[in-house]
């Protein structure tokens, strides 16, 4: 049953991902990426990472993709009929990509041995009272410095984005 759900989600996600890179209209690509990100969020639920599934949908679908679609509103990205969508020689890239993917999926992954031991994780989650509690316990103790540093990165990015978004005055200074 879980395998069937996984196959359905993976199929929808891969088809939408292929449409992201192949569709002509950029807005359609953005909407297909939303479908892909939603499927990835559902796959996180299958992996018992409920907090990250919610984060995925809130941040990626709710924030990043809305930002992309707003940026598309400010840019005239319509391509004319004779405009090329792809680079020259892109067929070679596709051939190499397909060979690489098939090589890894068919030859490398089935021959590898993986340790499969999720019982400890299930016990830990039950002991902490849920996935979010377990995540918070580690995030605010062992990884506190990285957490604070991530907030600094966000701050720098926001300041830089506001600076870049300002119009240039005729003298060349940013207003």
């Amino acid at each position: 049953m879980v395998k069937l759900i996984f196959i359905i989600l993976a199929g929808i996600g891969v088809i939408a991902a292929l449409m992201v890179v192949s569709l002509k209209n950029v807005v359609h690509s953005a909407f297909c990426l939303i479908i892909t990100l939603f499927c990835v969020g559902c796959i996180f639920v299958l992996l018992h990472a409920e907090f990250l599934a919610a984060t995925q949908i809130l941040i990626y679908v709710g924030a990043i993709m809305v930002l992309v679609i707003f940026a598309l509103m400010l840019i005239d990205s319509r391509e004319t009929a004779n405009d090329r969508r792809f680079h020259h020689q892109s067929q070679w890239v596709i051939i190499v990509g397909v060979i690489l993917a098939l090589e890894i999926v068919i030859f490398i992954i089935p021959k590898s041995k993986f340790i499969v031991n999720p019982e400890k994780m299930i016990a830990q989650t039950a002991e902490a009272g849920g996935n979010t509690q377990l995540l918070a316990r580690y995030l605010f103790t062992d990884y506190l410095f990285a957490f604070e540093f991530a907030s600094l990165i966000i701050l720098v990015a926001v300041v830089a984005a506001v600076f870049l978004g300002k119009r240039l005055s005729p003298t060349g200074k940013r207003e």
């Binding site: 292929l18 950029v26 892909t36 992309v68 598309l72 969508r85 680079h87 596709i94």
Partner: peptide
Amino acid sequence: LSITFFIIGIVGVVIRRNVI
């Protein structure tokens, strides 16, 4: 699934002309 998404993403970065 992960390697499929990864390869699709890399191919998209290389072949598309639109920066978005």
